[in-house]
């Protein structure tokens, strides 16, 4: 088996006295797709923020291709090959679609997809000259994704990309992510929508209150007692 691309080892994060993440560990290899699931406040976004360098973990270590990356600046982590989208898409609204992608492309170290290929993949070809602020919500999400993949990340986190999209757009997106996974990327999908998860991932890591409560195949998760309890009344099964 190939070596893990990203290793998260016992990562905890405290804000003041509040424990947002409690000793979370996981690994992911190239070509894998993992679902990161949990109710609001379960620590998913905190985990993303720690991995992407917004703040350092309180405890634990993170390795990328064998190098320790926790505590490094976010732009270095992004350039190294880990990237993410945002739950609320954050394209640069006063910049055009082209400028948004160009900005990220200009910081890519090696070769990779060209501007046109990225536009094509994310279905934004006709909109290069538009200011991102003028795009609709779905287009802004795709631009956020375009920005994230411009740096050719080998590990890509997708944060609630499906929220607010219609079924056609969801299918489109799942297709894009599948393609990237088969292209050899590791993909972590942070998501509530089970319908969407099923299309993209086979394995999930379920968090609650900052702790792992389940790890394994998605279909087993749906039958797990702990998971059921946590998600009672939540959007599971929709």
């Amino acid at each position: 088996m190939s070596e893990a691309e990203l290793v998260v080892d016992g990562v905890s994060k405290y804000f003041g006295g509040f424990c947002a993440l409690d000793a979370v560990s996981f690994e992911i290899r190239r070509g894998e797709a993992l679902g990161l699931v949990g109710p609001n406040g379960s620590g998913k976004t905190t985990l993303l923020n720690v991995i992407c360098g917004l703040y350092p973990p309180t405890k634990g270590q993170i390795f990328f291709r064998g190098f320790r990356i926790d505590g490094h600046k976010p732009h270095l982590i992004a350039r190294a090959g880990i990237n993410r989208t945002f739950q609320l898409a954050k394209p640069f609204k006063s910049l055009t679609v082209r400028e948004n992608i160009d900005l990220a492309l200009s910081h890519r170290k090696g070769d990779g997809a060209s501007l046109d290929e990225i536009l094509n993949l994310t279905n934004l070809t006709g909109m290069v000259g538009l200011e991102a602020g003028n795009l609709n919500a779905g287009q802004q999400k795709r631009l956020d994704l375009a920005r994230a993949i411009s740096l050719e990340p080998s590990v890509l986190f997708i944060d609630e990309l499906g929220a607010g999209l219609n079924p056609v757009e969801l299918n489109e997106l799942a297709e894009i992510l599948r393609k990237m996974q088969y292209g050899g990327r590791a993909i972590v999908v942070v998501e509530h929508l089970m319908g969407f998860l099923e299309k993209v991932v086979d394995h999930v890591l379920v968090l609650n209150a900052g702790r792992e409560i389940f790890r394994g195949e998605l279909r087993n998760a749906l039958n797990d007692q702990d998971v059921k309890r946590v998600f009672l009344g939540d959007s599971i099964g929709h």
């Binding site: 600046k73 732009h75 200009s106």
Partner: peptide, 25 residues
Amino acid sequence: SQFGLSLRAIKEDEYSASMAGVNVV
């Protein structure tokens, strides 16, 4: 220039800019 583009991106959202590879500081 690309440099100016980076600055405008930083002005809008620092974290997002750093995820585009921009050395914000």
